[in-house]
Design a binder for these strands. Sequence first.
DNA 1: CCTGTTTTGTGAAATAAGTAACAAAAAACT
DNA 2: AGTTTTTTGTTACTTATTTCACAAAACAGG
Lengths: 210, 210
Amino acid sequence: MITNKSCIIRLSRYKNALYRLRALGFVKVFSDNLADAIGVLPSQVRKDFSLFGISGNKRGGYQVDSLIEKLNTILGKEQTQEVIIAGLGNIGNALMKYKGFEKEGLKISACFDIDSTKYSRDSDIPVLPLEEMKEFVRAKRIKIGVIAVPDIAAQSVLDMMTACGIKGVLNFAPLRLRASGDIVVNNVNLELELENVIYFVNAQEKTKVS
Amino acid sequence: MITNKSCIIRLSRYKNALYRLRALGFVKVFSDNLADAIGVLPSQVRKDFSLFGISGNKRGGYQVDSLIEKLNTILGKEQTQEVIIAGLGNIGNALMKYKGFEKEGLKISACFDIDSTKYSRDSDIPVLPLEEMKEFVRAKRIKIGVIAVPDIAAQSVLDMMTACGIKGVLNFAPLRLRASGDIVVNNVNLELELENVIYFVNAQEKTKVS
DNA sequence: CCTGTTTTGTGAAATAAGTAACAAAAAACT
DNA sequence: AGTTTTTTGTTACTTATTTCACAAAACAGG
Ligand SMILES: NC(=O)c1ccc[n+]([C@@H]2O[C@H](COP(=O)([O-])OP(=O)(O)OC[C@H]3O[C@@H](n4cnc5c(N)ncnc54)[C@H](O)[C@@H]3O)[C@@H](O)[C@H]2O)c1
Ligand SMILES: NC(=O)c1ccc[n+]([C@@H]2O[C@H](COP(=O)([O-])OP(=O)(O)OC[C@H]3O[C@@H](n4cnc5c(N)ncnc54)[C@H](O)[C@@H]3O)[C@@H](O)[C@H]2O)c1
């Protein structure tokens, strides 16, 4: 099992690039097409593929269709992945309303909140009380959850998701969650991402002067 | 100039942990307090500090106040950073309404959109036509921008921001932007983050079985 | 069918990042 | 005052990731 996160991110990017290339009429691609598309070296592309046992044809490159298929298999995108969201606030809403997930094979199946004014059992994406999470997740065998609740509630929501049988979580709360068992937690911390930009801007300014 | 992104991210985390520790009454901390707080090894903490010339006292650890100050200087957080947002859709709204930025020294100064129904010149955070970006950014000497427009508009917005004198961008559009000049672009791709979770969940399931 | 060209696939080399180890400084204790 | 303990700061080591380089395969053109 390859545990290099940036490598997996690249696979996703290759896949996205391939869809674009296919739309442009490409039937086969070379490692340097993909490299250009996502901004890495051709040898990185081939190395990544080699790691996952993906092989093309010497001098013939890779068949776009079959490559997309292989990447989707590795990335677990053979069938639509159902996802639940906990916390229908700013971030939760943004994700729920986002149209782009569908074409990526991601489906927001339901949202859960503690605020009863937000419940809407019959809408396209139902908004349900937290208490119904376990039932819902088990019935639909959902494995992926998003945490978009206030910081102080995040740990308890993670624990609940773990108890429901969720296996992987994307967490927006800016704190370190203690994951029990074998649940995968991926953190997105937007403040940190902004601070990161600020650091690099300042750092660049300083080196420019000197 | 240190260009290791994860290192900078750790500095931000140290800083956040230090605020929490200070609130708890800590006046000095040891490398292993910080290590515990953010989940790395004490030697990593000391190495990071060493890289930036931060030093403490042998057997006495680090003074919390002065450490926070040094980190804030490195991270460019001495004064409030003003930020503009392009695209007041799902993500743009979520960011604009988020209360947490203020206490991090980040201020959303304005949003820019092409949809005239969204304009509100007099609200707390003004929402202005795109055309006014240059004037606004120059007048306020703003250096940081967020791109939260639809994918196809993202490149043109980046170009515009570059022309306005913006130096760093946090981009939510899931495509590779061509950055001209010395502008820093940090991409947040939420689909990719979700796909990443899905990969690791599947990978873990497979290794569990075998 | 042979020769030249292109492009893959992978092992080796280089670079980067993280971990360990330990001397030196400073405080605490006797 | 001297000994022990603690904790830093840095160098050396280890591991991870990226880049290079080149043989082998595949096709193209004569
Ligand atoms: N909005 C942003 O731009 C932004 C930026 C950075 C970080 N974050 C982080 O993302 C998380 C969500 O932020 P937000 O702005 O969307 O918050 P929010 O306050 O807008 O929404 C939180 C939602 O969670 C619900 N909630 C509260 N407790 C709950 C619980 N125990 N179980 C289920 N639902 C519960 C609330 O009813 C509310 O609907 C926070 O941790 C925040 O720090 C958000
Ligand atoms: N919402 C999400 O959860 C989510 C998830 C993943 C990725 N993204 C990405 O984030 C970006 C924004 O997504 P969203 O859901 O907020 O989009 P959205 O469609 O809700 O909002 C886009 C906003 O940008 C404005 N706009 C359009 N063209 C513009 C231009 N040239 N200049 C300025 N404003 C312009 C629109 O009027 C609208 O207000 C997209 O690239 C999307 O792919 C969003």
